[in-house]
Amino acid sequence: MKLGVFMVLFGGRKLEDALDYVVSKGLKAVEIGTGGYPGNSHCNPKDLLENEAALKEFQQQIESRGLIISALSCHGNPLHPQKELADKDHEDFVNTVKLAQKLGVKVVNTFSGCPGDHEGAKYPNWPVAPWPNDYKEILDWQWENKVIPYWTEQAAFATAHDVKIGLELHGGFSVHTPATLLRLRAAAGKAIGANLDPSHMWWQGIDPVQAIHILGREGAIHHFHAKDTVIDPVNVNKHGLTDMQSYTNMLDRAWQFRSVGYGHDIKVWADMMSALRLVGYDFVVSIEHEDGLMSIEEGFSKAVDNLQQVLIEEPVSEMWWV
């Protein structure tokens, strides 16, 4: 495995400066934001696709430092019921897939998106209960008319460009659990897989180690994020896991994102690294830092230090004792 970072963390720095900093920390991979919610401060796919010289310079900046690109990431909502918003995120996705092929990058990360509840809707609707029956009817309509048709087409497009799609399992979107990921994969094809982020599993009450086993046995993990979550034992009883308070209200929230090791101990992270190796994932562990209690540099540095203790980097050796 290789340790990497989601570079949107350093969107305020010039690319070359950010890359030098990452290399100084001993990392070997970068995940680059190309649109959607992460933005494209380091990489605008449309510009690079239209300028071969700029594309080569971009690629050289990364390769000359001994880094690889683990994924291009354009997390958005291409199923948004407002067409202009959906079209923009869809365009970002299409251009990102095309750029990934040119760069030899095998994974494009994004969200599944979430549709509205009917053709005339203005906002997404994320059903979280099967009753009253309206919610189940909305969910069925979304999957049959929006989610499966869209992603079946995009999976074929990605496959034609030799790219896999890593959908981040995230609350608020149609694909948010191992089960919903596998449902879409069964319908749309094996180009669909997970960008598995354990932080989003914990707040939904899912054990990330078991999520790794469930998805990994199906070959459905395309990329992996490293971010932690802590659940407040008092506040969760007040607000529940679907706490709708702002992330900035950290003292009263039921849960919050933390840097690696500050929500769960290193043994838990070691178990995840072992589970990834066990199910055949031997690619990049990409740090994502959204810890409101730490600066960018400190939160990132502590995540690096903690993961370097448990990352399994060398190839599996022969079982000499067998």
Rank of each mutant, 00 (worst) to 15 (best):
H223A: 14
H213K: 14
D197C: 03
D228G: 05
Q210H: 12
A191V: 12
N195G: 03
L215E: 00
I192A: 06
A220S: 13
G205D: 10
A226K: 03
P198V: 02
S199R: 00
G216P: 04
P208L: 09
K227M: 05
S199W: 00
D207W: 05
G205S: 12
P208G: 12
Q210A: 15
L196F: 11
Q210S: 14
W203G: 00
A211P: 06
H225R: 09
L196W: 01
A220D: 05
D207E: 13
A226E: 03
P198T: 04
I206W: 04
N195V: 00
G219E: 13
I212P: 01
I212Q: 04
A220L: 10
P198M: 05
I221F: 07
A226F: 08
E218T: 07
G216F: 08
D207N: 14
I212Y: 03
F224W: 14
D228M: 04
H222F: 11
A191P: 11
A191R: 12
D207H: 13
Q210M: 14
A226Q: 07
A220T: 11
S199L: 00
I206L: 14
I221P: 08
L215F: 01
R217K: 15
H222Y: 11
D228V: 05
E218N: 12
P208S: 12
I206Q: 06
W203S: 02
P198L: 03
D197Q: 03
G193L: 08
R217I: 11
T229P: 00
A194E: 01
L196C: 08
Q210G: 03
G216K: 10
A191E: 15
I221Y: 07
G205H: 06
H223W: 02
W203E: 06
D207G: 04
H222W: 15
H225E: 04
R217S: 15
N195R: 03
I206P: 06
A220E: 05
W202C: 05
I212D: 01
W202K: 13
A194Q: 01
A191K: 10
V209M: 09
A191I: 09
I214R: 11
Q204C: 07
L196V: 08
I192G: 04
H200R: 07
H222R: 13
H213Y: 15
Q204K: 12
G219K: 10
T229L: 05
H222T: 08
Q204T: 11
A211G: 09
W202R: 15
A194I: 01
I192M: 11
R217T: 15
T229G: 03
E218D: 15
L196G: 03
H223L: 02
L215H: 00
D228E: 13
W202D: 05
I214G: 01
